Structure formats: structure tokens, C-alpha cells
Simulated scan of single mutants.
Amino acid sequence: MRKKYFFFDIDGTLAYGITGIILPETIATIETLQKNGHFVAIATGRLQCSAIPQCKILGIQNMVSDGGNALTLHHKIIHMHPLPKQPILDLIAELEHHQIPWAYTAENKTIRHTKYVKFKELAGESNMDTLVHSSIEIASIEQFYKIYIYHPNLKKLNSLPSLTGLPQIHYNNNMLLIEPTHKEKGIFNMMEYLKADLADVVVFGDGINDLSMFRPEWFSIAMGNAIEILKQKADFVTKRCEDGGITYACQRFGWI
């Protein structure tokens, strides 16, 4: 059997529901893929540390995280690049000018910092802890990994000039998340690091931030619960996540 290099999204692909349920059969499938000699990695927009719990459950040692900006191989971080600093500083200056609530993550920890007391309440559910500071010395922040912006009208927020060119995801109806959105770059970098053939890559995804990693260079599988535009771009559409879509696809193509 030819070795494949699998990259799995987490939410809606490996896990489903608000609590992130992972099916026992999905765990067994990941284990079998690795026993069969395949390379298995997570490909996520999450901060590297935020995906570690899922890696532990699944027995996965490798990761493309931070939307493609970070690589982890055998539990070791190979690199972890922050967002471009000057455009972020320009954005923060504009947010401050308009008194728009914002927060940031500056290290590989599930912590976001803000000076807005009600930011956690405004932001809604999150896997990040929120630390409120009386003031923030922006010039002293060495790097930014994520920026969180609250606004009751995201369409109006998107008119800010400083947002142009910055990677962004609508986290919910009132929250804009500035984070890397090029998982494919992380996959390219991982495959170059491993000196492996791109034609042997297989990706699984379901959401808008998976579009970039559905590439013609490799094989792309959309979950049955995926957004329609991703299904149209996929080489194969499997069953829904909660119906064992990963196991179904891996059995169908003889990988397990």
C-alpha cells in the first residue's frame, strides 16, 4: 500500500457538536491509518496549544495549526509564525480610534488579552480564557497570533480600511477573528519538510476555512455536513461527521 499523508480539520470533520464529540470509530480509524504506515496530521485554524487535547484523544503527533502558520511534527513545534505586525498595529490604531472592543493572543496559550471589561460577555462562547487589563501597552507586544474584534454590525466593521488584506473569519454574528487562513501553505511546508510527494496528500474538511486546502495537487474529501462550495470543490463527498464519514471514506478507498 502506498503511503498517504492525511490532514484532518477538527470541528465538523473529526469532531461534531458544541462539545466536540469524536466517534469511537473515528479514533479507531486514525489508529489504523497510522498502523498501516500512513502519516496523519491535524490541519486547523486553532492555535497550536488549542488543538493538543484533540491530538491526545486521537493519538496524533503532527499538526498544521494556526491556519497554516505553524507546524508540529512528533509533538515538536517546527515553526510558529505570527501575524504580520505592522498591519495589525495599524488595525489596532483604527479600532482604538473608533472605540471598537478588541482582544489579542500573543503567545501559544489559550488566553486572550483585552482592556474591555465586558469583552467576554460580548464575545460569547469561546475556548479561550479572557484576561482584562486596566491598560495595554501596545508597543510592548512582540507578536500577535490572533485578533478578536466585537462589533454589532460586521458589515459596517468590514469597511475599515485597515482590515483590507488581513486574513479574517466571521467567528459568529458579532465577532470577527483575524487569523491566518491558508492551511494549504502549512501542508506544502510540511510535505517539503518531509520530502514527500504532494500527490500522496489527502485532506478532509467541512468549512469555509478549509477551502484553501482543497487543491488540485492532491485528493480532497468533503464531509457530508460540509458547506456546499466545499463539496463542489471536493474530489469526493463522504458521509456526515456524526455518521462516521471519515471511516466510510477510508474504507472506500482501501486505506484501512
Rank of each mutant, 00 (worst) to 15 (best):
M1A: 09
F6L: 00
D11S: 00
L14P: 02
L14T: 07
I21W: 12
I21F: 14
L23N: 06
A28S: 11
T29W: 00
Q34V: 04
N36H: 09
H38I: 04
A41W: 00
G45W: 02
L47P: 00
P53W: 05
Q54L: 15
K56L: 11
G67T: 01
N69G: 07
I77Q: 11
I77N: 09
M80L: 15
P84N: 10
Q86S: 14
L91M: 03
E96Y: 01
H98W: 10
H98F: 12
Y104E: 08
Y104I: 08
E107M: 08
E107P: 04
V117Y: 14
E121D: 15
L122A: 07
L122D: 06
G124W: 00
E125M: 15
S126K: 02
M128R: 09
H133G: 01
S135N: 07
I141M: 05
E142N: 12
I149R: 08
I149C: 12
Y150E: 05
K155L: 11
K156M: 06
K156Q: 11
P161Q: 02
S162H: 03
T164Y: 10
L166Q: 07
I169W: 15
L177Q: 05
K183C: 05
I187N: 02
I187E: 02
Y193H: 11
V203N: 01
N209P: 03
N209I: 01
N209T: 04
D210R: 06
M213W: 06
M213K: 13
M213L: 11
E217S: 07
E217H: 04
N225L: 04
T238M: 09
C241N: 06
D243S: 03
G244P: 14
G244L: 09
G244M: 07
G244D: 08
G245E: 06
I246C: 08
I246K: 03
T247L: 10
Y248W: 13
A249I: 00
C250F: 01
Q251S: 14
W255C: 10
I256D: 08
